[in-house]
Design a protein around this nucleic acid. Sequence first.
DNA 1: TCTTTATAGTTCTAAAAACGAACTGTCAAT
DNA 2: ATTGACAGTTCGTTTTTAGAACTATAAAGA
Lengths: 170, 170
Amino acid sequence: MRWDALEEEPCSMARTIGVIGDRWTLLILRECFLRTRRFEGFQSALGITRHLLAERLKKLVRQGVLRRIPYQEAPKRHEYILTQKGLDLYPIMMAIVHWGDTHMVDTRGRPLLHEHRKCGKNFDPVMVCSECGEPLSAKEVHTHPGPGARSTPAIQAPEKPKARARRSAA
Amino acid sequence: MRWDALEEEPCSMARTIGVIGDRWTLLILRECFLRTRRFEGFQSALGITRHLLAERLKKLVRQGVLRRIPYQEAPKRHEYILTQKGLDLYPIMMAIVHWGDTHMVDTRGRPLLHEHRKCGKNFDPVMVCSECGEPLSAKEVHTHPGPGARSTPAIQAPEKPKARARRSAA
DNA sequence: TCTTTATAGTTCTAAAAACGAACTGTCAAT
DNA sequence: ATTGACAGTTCGTTTTTAGAACTATAAAGA
């Protein structure tokens, strides 16, 4: 499967994975949420090769997740900042962090605490139903096709030749 | 950076990315949540190469996200099912789907709708604060080091020689 | 019985992606 | 005139992934 094909899939998850579904991109986005904005900042925080970093930033800009904004002339320099589309990735980031906090911490406990300014407390992110406000879990959710569904809700294999015609000749 | 190094990072996000942060793994997990359990099921739904599929499944089992359970003897066959650790990935999956629903749909609308059995309505997942129940956004959250923090909360570049000695001598 | 099919992999080669290091270019400061 | 900060680009090597074929076990079919 070519990865740009992902964005054509009739599956919001596949499309999203096509945008942010690789390791460096996710780490770059983590840095964005930690207020990193410049090329050197990303590079030295992550240790990513400059080549890949340039490519990933370009892609995120192309996708509308980051905006490239000049912060000085002569020489032209730009910063990369999250668009609203990028800021909307926050729940994904928090969900990832929270899973790590729950299942991947060592004996010393979680590396980072999150304080909610509104209520002043350290919190965990909880995913709830927009309609009734109850916390969600996989088993309480039933999926069915929406208006954008194609015949197949999932990614389809490339037409599997079906391995027939084994005895047809020879 | 070697990818197994990610799991050593003092960052829950990096550690999680070390487990699920690649495209095929995320797609495999999507299939798991859609009730796929067997090798051939994953392979034909995704079009992933058998080689990679075998490797990814092995890794997810090693990480405790999937359990490999025999469903017949002679020949020995196994199913891959989500552990609790795996089921706990649900908020990540939903957050990814929701972002795609919001930002990546074409004109026809979202491919899949989600119904909350408890309240019977189609819903969107919303991430809220565990303490006050208010929806979260990036700007309302302040992070600070937790007990598992090392000096550096972020991934550190490999020791950058730092190019100092700017005025000290020479 | 001999062949095909279903299932779950493994093995092999070629192609693609990532790594790592060096290089380019602009400007400010020394 | 040289060095350093910054933001990349280029290039040769290594690692990963793709794609196809092959192995193995057992049931079903001709």
